[in-house]
Amino acid sequence: MKEKHFQILGIAVVAVGLTFIAFLYWSQPRTLAEVATKGSVAIGTYEVNKTEFDAGLAAFRQDQFVAARSAFERADPEKRDAATQFYTAYSYYRQGWGRVSNDDALFKSGLETMGRIDPNFRSVDANLQMKTAAELKFELEEGLKLTASDFNPLKLTKERK
């Protein structure tokens, strides 16, 4: 190999190396697996794990919300997919919903998850009563408020959405 070739190779190694190091320090992966995931996000090839998502959806429909969230977490470790995050937030709502009072901690987690979803998101799942991010967010926010209407005995007849 000629010296010129080493020089070209050297410049390429330094450019790629410094870019990779800058990416690591910017994205802060915690494990080697996260390095791969964050790398796929950076180059635009990130995809949700379909098998885990389906497992999560099945658990969600059987009211096994903790298992559902766990599967959704594995399906979308970067928390970037709107549909997965919508189901995660919905699972917080359904688990935290109560006829007399709601679980504030779960509703707060639901709202936190809603912060990662595009406000214009609309679900195509016919089994869900609330199909838009706005509806779910409103329900979670209302669930956290304590108003005079909360003491209305007719509220005991309300149904979970």
Binding site: L9, G10, G17, I21
Partner: peptide, 25 residues
């Protein structure tokens, strides 16, 4: 040699750049 100056040396120094700020929780 050119291989040391342009490949080995940058590789070593890049490894230092990568590991210098690395900590384990």
């Amino acid at each position: 040699s050119a291989s040391v100056i342009y490949l080995v040396l940058p590789a070593i120094l890049l490894a230092v750049t990568l590991l210098g700020g690395l900590r384990l929780g």
